[in-house]
Computed example of a mutant assay.
Amino acid sequence: MSHYFIAIQLPEELQAFFSVWQHKLKEQLPYKQWPNKEELHITLKFIGEAADNKVVQLKQELQAVQELQTFNLSVGGIGTFGNPSKPRVLWAGVERTERLFELQQTVENCARKIGFEKENRAYRPHITLAKKWAGKRSLSEETLPGLHKQFTDKQTMHVADVILFRIHPSKSPKYEVVERYMLK
């Protein structure tokens, strides 16, 4: 069975913008995985493994997002998840707006209707720039504040659609568009 997730794909100009950040950050931080710029996204819901019949049902349910309005988001700045000295994820920030949370909740409710588990953790929107710390040494307390000062630019993006993606771990790019849902 394939694995799936639902996300907002970044427009090409933001893919290029964050790709420049990744290039600069690679020189300073030892992460194993740096997603291709085409793979940069804001996850709304990770589905995981799903049988074909469940995917068909999910595609039907997700049509509900088409009733929501398009909106703008501010993205930028950096942060980490995990142990501060060996953070597992390096991310770019995403503005936490009411419209984004409404969209995420709609997606969550669609998935729950057909039996996908609700995420236990609070929703923390972000754009993964790198993951899997590979450094022999820890991230020093001086490094991250320096990076916060260096990577402060914010960009605005227009959110006009939501995508159901299939994951292909051994291919590049890893993510295949299964279905695209346009907002109003």
Rank of each mutant, 00 (worst) to 15 (best):
H3Y: 06
Y4L: 03
Y4E: 07
F5G: 05
I8R: 11
Q9P: 04
L10K: 03
E13A: 03
L14F: 06
A16K: 14
A16W: 01
A16Y: 06
F17T: 11
F18Y: 13
W21G: 07
K24Y: 06
K24Q: 14
L25T: 05
K26L: 11
K26D: 11
E27T: 03
L29K: 09
K32N: 10
Q33H: 15
W34M: 08
W34R: 02
N36T: 14
N36G: 12
N36A: 15
E38T: 09
E38D: 11
E38N: 11
L40A: 12
L40K: 02
T43I: 00
T43G: 10
F46D: 09
G48Q: 07
E49M: 06
E49N: 08
A50P: 12
V55E: 07
L58W: 11
L58E: 07
V65W: 01
Q66P: 00
E67G: 08
E67N: 14
T70P: 06
T70G: 13
F71G: 13
L73Q: 11
L73I: 01
S74R: 08
S74D: 08
G77T: 04
T80D: 00
G82S: 05
N83M: 08
N83F: 09
N83Q: 13
P84M: 08
S85K: 15
R88G: 10
L90D: 14
L90F: 10
W91Y: 15
E95L: 04
T97W: 09
E98W: 04
F101N: 13
F101T: 04
L103F: 07
L103I: 01
Q104Y: 07
T106S: 10
T106I: 04
E108L: 06
E108T: 15
N109Y: 07
N109E: 15
N109C: 04
A111Q: 08
A111I: 10
A111V: 09
R112V: 14
R112G: 10
K113W: 02
K113V: 13
E117N: 08
N120S: 10
R121L: 03
A122C: 00
R124K: 15
P125T: 00
P125I: 02
T128H: 04
L129C: 06
L129F: 08
L129D: 03
A130E: 00
A130P: 02
A134T: 05
G135H: 06
K136V: 14
K136G: 12
L139G: 02
L139M: 15
S140F: 03
E141K: 15
L144Q: 01
P145A: 08
P145Y: 05
G146P: 00
K149P: 00
Q150Y: 03
F151I: 07
F151E: 10
D153R: 13
K154F: 12
Q155N: 13
M157C: 10
H158L: 11
V159C: 12
I163N: 02
L164W: 07
F165A: 01
I167D: 05
I167S: 15
P169L: 02
S170K: 09
K171I: 04
K171E: 14
S172M: 11
P173W: 01
R180G: 00
Y181I: 14
Y181A: 09
Y181C: 06
K184Y: 07
